[in-house]
Design a protein around this nucleic acid. Structure first.
Lengths: 217, 217, 217, 217
DNA sequence: AATGAATGAGCATTCATTCAT
DNA sequence: TATGAATGAATGCTCATTCAT
């Protein structure tokens, strides 16, 4: 969670260069996965010498983790904003869906990376970084569901933790559906070739699905 | 979709050897990902010479695709059986959930591979193989939902294709939750450490979630 | 001490190639020391692909140890022959001196390597290989001295183990004096520029030195 | 031999800093050998910027040579003191042995470096620095032996130059036996594990060895 | 004068693939 | 047909050295 100890050198360079490095790294890792991502390539694309690269990051793994950390922080920020807003549960859910649609489209590589991440054998270290975020969402979702349940709006017999999990699953795959080739093809096959021009329809239907799942009436 | 052209040599060897090769390959690919998987290693574990390996499969990619093909066929068989059974929609859904729980536990590596697959840059070729299966499920789900809708059991305002998609999303992530490290940790974090001892609870709650999403009353 | 386990592949190739590899490796290690010896270079000089090199030896260290092993065995063979000969102590010593003069001249690089070896931080593993030989010499020298002492030929107040050590020290530095640049210069400085043309003088004087050290009258 | 030309900058800094740099460099070179020694590391340990390091020493080699120079000067001082003392030959020899025992124990790294030095390909340059000292010892030893010979104390048939060489060889290896891992192990193997607790025995026996080698009676 | 960030050549090692037997 | 030895391109990482500040 706390990376700043090793990244001193990296944090000292200009923001422009930092972003260039992150961009290059996110692309490379998202495109090729951890193992076949090529650090010399990242350096080349970011117009930074390999030597510098290794001044900024101890090794490939640390760079990878830093990227993940960056991506997660970025996502966390957005989620927190929504979740802490004044909306009610349904309002929040709708907002999340909309944000997923726009965010995963404009951060294709970051989202691909998130999918990659679920495969890597680095799970241990990666999980340390991500669990933080997942933990927050898990708890918030569950508490909102609990609230709604107590208010009599949600059926009494639901396990709020599991329902939170199913809900987040729907969000995750929605995210991937807007960024990862495979899932994009799959969505097109399930629905239609022009589904990516119908964000409103997707949002509306997913809302309906979720509303039905949760709410009485 | 049709692989037999190149796989003549492979199909001619004993089933036992074929299975040994598949086992070794599935493990290696699932464990290390496409790029880091080591063909010489697979040959070693399968007790086959590398020379033979390259007689059976033109190159790494073809082996990978053959493995995916094999995995997908295995899954397709199971799904088809359920989907073509006499149960009604809810009955089928329950069966699928139960099968996912047992299948992904006893075929951990194959399921991991399925997750891997969604990342690789081979998406194009992979998709050719898998689209077949996804196409079948997509159509079947949609038709069943249509049926139920026409029968007045499912709300009228649902887009059956999108609902089929959401439904399958829930299934996919359930599958991963029982086999991929990352998703396993995530499920534990959302619910509890002992969630993997409570398959009935998970199945029951997921049924509830889906039933609510789809059905009137 | 037993290396054959890992060196199967290496032992299977033609003796000619094996010798070429050893020669190249001995030269490289003797010339540059362990750290800056370049394996790609050794492969090049030995006209073997790097890939093969790594089939024969797991890594740089194993190659190094194999070389040391080879050198030590070669030396051990010669020493054993002398030590087990029928000569008396003085006769053996003279033979050893003569052998050192010829051996270290015709195996310059192997002898340089022996000097290198005393510096490397691999001491641990290296020592395992060499201790064997050193142990043998140590014991043999000591026993011969003991014998001579018991026979009244050698003074009674000598510690045979320490005397064996001093004796071997004289041999070691004699060896280096015929192969290592530094020690060669040093010998020339102590005696004269043309000392390397006077092997008989060196041998005779060293005999005198040692005889005096050991023997009564 | 004369280094001061390039070392102006270095000689201008405080003695404390100079010593810190020497200490760090001696450790690094002794520990890792010339090639693997890391100048950036030396700078770090000596708390000097790399930039300054390269102001003081043109490059790695010059730093190395400066270190050798320093070490040799230190040793030369001690030897000269002994050699010019009023003792007779045997007295001097005993003093030298004692000094070797204490000096090589308290200057382990410098002594290691001396061993390193005999291997490096820098022999040429190194020799320039050291020959000075070796030349002095060579001449002094020889002259003392000559003296003793003329005085009838030493046998008439010895070549004083070669005997001086053998004598110095014994000293050199004694030195290494107290500081270099390899030679330490070797001494333990020849004599006993606890030999390093028996300096008096070693000194006494070496005296006996040398006395016998040189002296009538 | 002093600094230390930046550079990039260089090296150990891996592994997909070929091909002679 | 089957083998497995041989190949060599490719890549992560280090470190001596430079030079702008």
């Amino acid at each position: 969670m706390n990376f700043n100890h090793t990244l001193e050198a990296f944090n000292r360079i200009s923001e422009e260069k930092r972003n260039k490095i992150f961009d290059a790294a996110i692309n490379e890792f998202a495109e090729h996965g951890y193992e076949s991502a090529n650090i010399n390539n990242i350096a080349l694309k970011a117009e930074v010498s390999i030597g510098s690269m290794y001044k900024y990051f101890k090794n490939k793994e640390e760079l990878y983790l830093a990227i993940i950390h960056f991506g997660v922080e970025s996502l966390k920020g957005i989620l927190e904003e929504i979740i802490c807003s004044e909306e009610d549960l349904l309002g929040k859910i709708e907002k999340i869906i909309r944000v997923i649609q726009s965010y995963s489209r404009s951060n294709v590589n970051l989202t691909k990376l998130y999918n990659q991440m679920t495969n890597e054998n680095h799970s241990g270290l990666v999980w340390e970084i991500v669990s933080d975020m997942e933990g927050v969402t898990a708890k918030l979702y569950a508490s909102f569901i609990k609230e709604a349940k107590d208010a009599g709006k949600v059926r009494n017999d639901v396990d709020e933790k599991l329902f939170a999990y199913f809900l987040d699953n729907l969000f995750i795959l929605l995210q991937f559906s807007y960024s990862c080739e495979y899932y994009k093809e799959r969505l097109k096959m399930f629905v239609s070739e022009d589904i990516f021009d119908k964000d409103d329809l997707v949002a509306e239907q997913l809302m309906k699905f979720i509303r039905g799942a949760f709410f009485l009436e």
